[in-house]
Write a protein that binds this DNA or RNA. Sequence first.
DNA 1: AACGCGCCCTGTCCGC
DNA 2: TGCGGACAGGGCGCGT
Length: 274
Amino acid sequence: MPELPEAETIVRDLQHRIPGATITRVTVARADVLHPGITPPMLDQRLRGKRITGVSRRGKNVVIELEQEHRLVINLGMTGRVITSDAKFADSMRHVAVRFELDDGRAVLYDDARRFGDIDLRDGAGWAVRTTELGVEPLSDALTAGLLHALTRTSIVPIRNWLLDQRKIAGVGNIYALEALYRSGVRPTRRARTLSKRETAALRDNLRDVLQESIDMRGTTISDYRDASGESGRFANRLRVYDRKGEKCRQCDAIIKRIVLTNRSAFYCPSCQK
DNA sequence: AACGCGCCCTGTCCGC
DNA sequence: TGCGGACAGGGCGCGT
């Protein structure tokens, strides 16, 4: 579910709520959301007494920064949510997997119906490893048209699949990959290396635009996504192809198609996208 | 090395 | 009303 804009929205919410607080206790109801090798007692023992110093994002991951360079890295999978216990909707969370109790009486709740999410704890060195496994941040200056063109030269995979590879660009998921391709006039099936310089330049700009516009609307809620207060995002009605099979293209009146690429839906306008 | 596939798990919706 | 199947924003491990 949550891609970069959704993770970014949660991060911004948490940034003005939890830094300065100290974790007093961690309770794990669903150990399968913990990163392999991390056990519930270990998590509790290593977090207890640690002060939260900041909150940031890397790709689709929400990163809670702690004293001594430790980081709690939360990947929300498909249905993960991070909600503070003082939020209006906190009591309605029905799949709380982990609770991080704070010294001010509040708690940070990790809720995840499908439990595809992953909670990892890294020290400075461990984080350095993890972050280098991820690709360029699409909203950073590092993602230039030239870089996107160069990166795509060696791959024969459909460009939609290429965009989902977190080792290349970090944070893009199915929704924004498809929306950016639509805006760029490129079909999701096109092999990455066949995109022209002009097309990769357009794709770079459109990717950044659609991500930023979604952040401005606090993300896309199809069904599960909620921000740190439990509220839905408002970008869903701005989607032009995602989940619009059979509906009319907003630019040309052709009918939006749905195909399957490596077991995941792809939507596109057969007339606007080449 | 790069790629495609199956799978992890729960909830919801649709057709019968 | 109930049941089976398809599908869902992600990502890992495996075989080729």
